[in-house]
């Protein structure tokens, strides 16, 4: 991946030496949120689209509940829509601005963070986000009916991917870029564990069938929800077993949304921050935690993970990612009472 190579450039070659360490904490925070929300929007759009087309219950009806489960929104959603219709699910996740995990709610957050980080991000990034978020914020249920759910989700997905491309091509490679990458990879790690956790148990409630071949269509929908279907096919052309699918999504080193790849890239980002921006002290706790996380993943096969308790492991990983994000916040934007003037600046 280009990202990793770029993060390994030495500060001398990027001309950053004289201006080290001036990234405002608030900017780092905004860059992280920007990456996180754009990832989430893309994931949610893909999930809605795949769910509509492929996720069916035994009665052949679309199982929208899985989206609620992935987002841990059960309580809130049921309170609002005790007898939910398809329209309720779609509106809750696309046009309901009051729902912070809806596409509109997240676009609003993207917009605020992009405005905060506007002095830092490229004009092209800002221009695209400006137009995209305004469009999303103007969407209403009639637009969904008119455009069709699938076409709408595709357009949203494409806008997210355009954002990723514009960012890759235009954002200056300094700390801001690294903080952006940090949360992109953490978010992808989190998302993949949520997808596996939720879908695995709806598709395979009992453990005996772990190695057996099962309903291909439904497992394919899991892969499609992560944009992994064709990559998986290339690798495993004959058998689709639950363990194979889980193993691919968790441990494959080439798939851009796999847990293993994203944890490795998170590690590379932290290494670059430590080495080139003198942030070793701030990163220490985070890097320790991440090493442990990666070790548990490398030491187990997919079958081990499933037999020992897939749900427990996925939940533990989510907890670790949350802890990393909290540690990053404590290290990079600590509360005011924890701040001290470094000695070298005492006598000015």
């Amino acid at each position: 991946m280009g990202d990793v190579r770029m993060t390994q450039l030495s500060p001398t070659s990027t001309g950053m030496l004289s201006n080290l360490n001036t990234l405002l904490s608030r900017y780092a925070e905004s860059m992280m949120w920007l990456a996180r929300y754009m990832e989430r929007i893309e994931n949610l759009a893909r999930l809605i689209e795949v769910t509509e087309a492929f996720v069916r219950g035994p009665d052949g009806r679309t199982v929208w509940e899985t989206i609620v489960q992935i987002n841990s929104d059960e309580g809130r959603f049921q309170a609002l829509h005790p007898a939910a219709t398809e329209q309720d699910y779609i509106q809750f996740y696309i046009t309901d601005l009051a729902n912070p995990s809806s596409i509109k709610g997240m676009a609003n957050a993207v917009r605020e963070n992009a405005r905060s980080a506007r002095p830092l991000i490229s004009t092209e990034m800002w221009m695209h986000l400006n137009v995209f978020t305004r469009w999303v914020l103007d969407l209403d249920p009639s637009d969904i009916r008119r455009t069709g759910l699938s076409a709408l989700c595709n357009r949203i997905k494409q806008d997210c991917q355009t954002h990723t491309g514009v960012t890759e091509g235009t954002l200056y490679r300094d700390q801001a870029w690294l903080f952006y990458l940090l949360d992109r990879h953490l978010e992808r790690s989190d998302q993949i564990t949520r997808l596996i956790d939720t879908r695995y148990h709806t598709l395979l409630p009992c453990e005996e069938e772990v190695g057996s071949e099962i309903d291909t269509t439904q497992w394919a929908s899991v892969l499609r929800s992560a944009a992994a279907y064709h990559a998986f096919r290339r690798l495993q052309p004959v058998t689709t077993t639950p363990a194979n699918v889980v193993g691919f999504l968790l441990k494959n080193e080439g798939f851009p949304r796999s847990l293993a790849l994203n944890l490795r890239q998170t590690d590379a980002v932290l290494a670059a921050l430590s080495a080139h921006y003198n942030l070793r002290r701030q990163n220490y706790a985070i890097q320790e935690r991440l090493s442990e996380l990666r070790a548990t993943l490398e030491d187990q096969t997919a079958e081990d993970i499933i037999i020992r308790g897939l749900h427990e492991y996925m939940y533990w990983i989510q907890e670790q990612i949350e802890a990393i994000q909290n540690e990053a916040a404590a290290a990079y934007w600590p509360p005011i009472e924890k701040l001290h003037v470094p000695e070298c600046y005492m006598e000015q």
Binding site: L20, N21, T22, L23, L24, S25, R26, Y27, A28, P119, Q175, F179, Y277, N278, L279, Q282, A331, Y332, W333, I336, L339, H340, V341, P342, Y345, M346, Q348
Partner: peptide
């Protein structure tokens, strides 16, 4: 940097900004 009030801090009558590497 474009800063807001909350990004700045005065200590001992000197002004500092809050960066990822500290003040």
């Amino acid at each position: 940097p474009l800063v807001e009030g909350r990004d700045l801090l005065v200590e001992n009558h000197h002004v500092y900004m809050r960066t990822v590497a500290g003040l």
